[in-house]
Design a protein around this nucleic acid. Structure first.
Lengths: 220, 220
DNA sequence: TGTTGTGAAAACCTTCACAGCG
DNA sequence: CGCTGTGAAGGTTTTCACAACA
């Protein structure tokens, strides 16, 4: 088991929160603050102070009872923990509405993740540069993904093409997939899959909106 | 506390899975199957059979040991549970790349959720019909939201406008928000908020892609 | 006083395993 | 036999609560 730097073992939820903390800390740092207390960070992240302290314990970071946490040291530590030593190459498959929104969103992003190529089946899109990203045909996806050194893939194709796309990405060396298609991907367990199913999310919001907060479960 | 039809108490995770089951069941039904077993549904949803049975227990649905679950009755039951008696009105704020992708995605969706209006600050978009949806100015958002009877809102504006937008939606009667802005919204607890933070999700995928499946936690 | 770090407890969620039944 | 429904067990995540310290 990979022992990361120090402390315990980050689960999916912990990783998510660390990522949120980092963004907040960058903002806090830019605002000029040198230190931050757990309850501050917690309030901004929408979690409890105890949760923040646990999470930081997980990555082996300590603060001081009097001054709290050193903002820039903490940003660095989270970076050490979450980011690859250099950077990671990401490819996108499917340059429809969702794909283009993602490209626009990630254009000129932080240095540790970069979309290095996109793929689409539409010949009208292939070999053009869309939102600053070169669009390749889906035919030689595996080879091109390998060439781009992508370890991460984003799937934004229609549901019925998702499984096939996922396999090609995997064969090209991808080990993590962010899947926007409403399909459960069947892949070897060493490929990490994160599903973002907008319909499901919206249905959930609609459900709990209707329940109001009659039951407290709806909250948090 | 609102007692829903029968059985227990659906938490966020249960609701999410029910929504997934429903879509699978619709597909299964269209393929001609009348019944389905828990392990079938489970495999397609990427969960365990025991989980499926528990979830159905939660909504008070029973199958038969010999034939499994009646597909169309189950679809109906999930609908009774998840959906509003008639339908729910949804509004979208922010008709940029993400907003337009969402409009395109939900155009001509199922009958129980419909985007009835969009809002944007850009005068070039206001009063036009984009992806089949009328775009209103942000000025009279509260009144218009109320007029549209929206209980659900989608926020797809830049982060620094999100909190203000959320308050206006809330004042207009919205009780559930799907938030694509990278901001924690501070709202009364009776407003349910679902955050979709793409950067955070991608960072998590990148993290676990790198860990490979060295540790089993990365899986599932 | 106020903070952090953390063992212990509580809460929550999933799986096991088996009775019951067609 | 193979399935469902479910009490009980197991696992994970969050919170509590307090010692230690400035």
């Amino acid at each position: 088991m990979a022992d990361r730097s120090a402390g315990g073992f980050a689960t999916r939820k912990v990783v998510k929160r660390l990522s949120v903390y980092r963004r907040l800390l960058e903002r806090i740092g830019q605002a000029g603050a040198k230190n931050v207390f757990s309850h501050d960070l917690a309030a901004q992240a929408g979690v409890t102070a105890a949760q923040v302290r646990r999470d930081l314990m997980t990555i082996g970071f300590s603060g001081s009872p009097s001054r709290g946490y050193d903002v820039s040291r903490l940003v660095d530590k989270i970076g050490q923990y979450l980011d690859a030593p250099q950077w990671q190459s990401v490819v996108l498959v499917g340059v429809g509405h969702v794909g283009q929104a993602l490209l626009a969103y990630f254009s000129g992003r932080g240095p540790h993740l970069a979309i290095t190529g996109a793929f689409d089946a539409d010949p009208g899109k292939v070999n053009r540069v869309i939102q600053g990203c070169r669009c390749y045909p889906v035919d030689d996806m595996e080879a091109r993904v390998r060439q781009l050194g992508a370890e991460v893939g984003i799937i934004a194709v229609p549901g019925d093409a998702a499984q096939h796309t996922a396999l090609q990405l995997m064969r090209g060396g991808v080990r993590g997939i962010l899947n926007f298609a409403p399909t459960h991907l069947r892949l070897p367990e060493y490929v990490y899959v994160e599903n973002v199913d907008i319909t499901v999310l919206l249905e959930r919001v609609a459900f709990f909106a209707r329940q109001g907060s009659l039951d407290k479960e709806a909250v948090r």
